[in-house]
């Protein structure tokens, strides 16, 4: 059974159809003992199937340590939304419920190369000269 409902799929297809640039989803998982690991991968693959602008690449955290290090992935399931460039956008855990729309927002933002932030915010963020790591904890409700 699909994780994305038919009526949602139609909406998502419409949204993804408008993407100006292709987007790559890089997904890390592992085989064993992973809560929601299978569901997360299935969700991303169903999503990518809705548009030829969206692709998903699956990697294994344990077997592909170098790749994981390259992306700074230390836990799974991990989902990276990028295009030719990695903008540092990461989802850890299943992006379901409210986070599913956050994922769609991230895909749209990456495709458009536009964060959607206010001009003042962009200006201030440009002046940041040291690494800044934000971790937003959420629950899927």
């Amino acid at each position: 059974m699909g994780l994305i409902r038919e009526q949602d799929a139609a909406e998502i297809r419409k949204l993804l159809g408008k993407l100006p640039q292709p987007v790559r989803i890089i997904h890390f998982t592992q085989e064993l003992n992973l809560q929601y690991g299978v569901e997360t991968q299935q969700l991303l693959e169903e999503l990518a199937a809705l548009s030829d602008k969206l692709s998903v690449e699956v990697h294994n955290l344990v077997l592909e340590k170098e790749k994981a290090a390259e992306y700074g992935v230390d836990k799974v399931p991990a989902t990276i939304v990028r295009n030719g460039k990695d903008y540092g956008i990461r989802f850890f855990g299943i992006p379901a419920g409210y986070e599913f729309s956050t994922l769609l927002d991230a895909i749209r933002a990456v495709a458009e190369g536009d964060s959607g932030l206010k001009p003042e915010t962009r200006e201030k963020l440009k002046q940041v000269t040291e690494p800044l790591h934000l971790q937003v904890f959420v629950t899927p409700t």
Partner: peptide
């Protein structure tokens, strides 16, 4: 997206 030094994680 506005600065390469910034990483944003969404953690369940």
């Amino acid at each position: 997206m506005e600065n390469d030094l910034i990483q944003a994680d969404c953690v369940e």
